[in-house]
Amino acid sequence: MADKHESTESDHDAAIGDVEQAFGTMYTQIRRVMIRRAETVHPELTVFGFKILRELNRDETLQQGVLAERLLSDKGAVSRVVRQLEDLELITRVPDPADRRAQLVRLTEKAHVALDSVAEDNRSVLRARLSLWEIDEIRRLRDLLGKLNETMAEREHEHRGER
C-alpha cells in the first residue's frame, strides 16, 4: 500500500511540476504581450507605466499612494513613473479635494483612446483563440482558474496573518 501512496505522491509532484513549467511559459508570453500593449499605447511606455494606466482606467482618479499599494510597489517608483506618464501626456495630476497635500492622478483623453484600442484588441485575440475550444473546455478553464485564484487568495490572507 505504501508503494501506491508513493507512486501517487510522485505523480502528483510531477503534475505540479508540469503546471509550474506551464505557468513559467505563460508568464513569459504574458510579459511579451504586456510589452507590445505598452508600446501600442506609446513607444516609450514601460510595462509598469502600462499597469498604472490600467489601474487608472478602472478608477477615474487615484492618489499615487493607492497606486503603489495596488501595484505592490514603493511610492518612489510610482512617483517616477507618474512623472514619465505626465511627460508622455498620458496622465494629469490634480489636487485632491479631500486632502490638499495629496494629488490625484487621472488619465488624459489620449490615454483613454489608446487603452480602449488595446482592450478591444485583447478581447478579440482572446475570443479568437478560445473560440477554437469546446464550450465545456472554456468553462472548465474558467472554473479551474477561479479555484486557483481562491486558493492563492487564501494563501495570501494566511501569509498576511503571519506577519
Rank of each mutant, 00 (worst) to 15 (best):
Q29N: 14
R70M: 06
A153G: 01
E9F: 13
N122L: 07
R101H: 05
V19S: 12
L45N: 03
R123V: 15
I35V: 04
D136R: 13
H12R: 07
Q63V: 13
D136T: 15
H159P: 02
D99P: 09
A14N: 11
E150C: 13
V78I: 10
L90Y: 01
N122Y: 13
S73F: 08
A14H: 13
V118T: 02
R127A: 05
L67Y: 01
G49W: 00
V78W: 01
P43D: 09
R142I: 03
S124N: 12
D116V: 10
A2I: 08
D74E: 07
G161Q: 13
L90T: 03
H157E: 05
P95C: 00
Y27F: 07
D96K: 09
E44C: 06
R32C: 08
R36H: 03
V125F: 15
A77K: 11
E39F: 01
E39I: 04
A38I: 05
H42V: 04
L90P: 00
T108Q: 07
S73K: 10
L90W: 00
R93M: 09
I52W: 02
D143K: 08
K51C: 10
E150Y: 15
M34P: 00
L71S: 03
R54T: 04
E86S: 04
H112K: 09
R142T: 07
Q64E: 14
E39C: 03
D96F: 13
E9K: 06
F23R: 12
V33F: 14
R83I: 04
S10M: 08
V105H: 03
R139M: 13
N57L: 01
E69S: 06
E6T: 10
D87M: 02
K110C: 12
M26K: 05
G17H: 00
R54C: 05
V94R: 11
R160L: 09
A22S: 07
E156N: 12
G65A: 09
A15E: 03
L53H: 06
A2L: 03
D121P: 06
E134H: 13
I91T: 09
P95F: 00
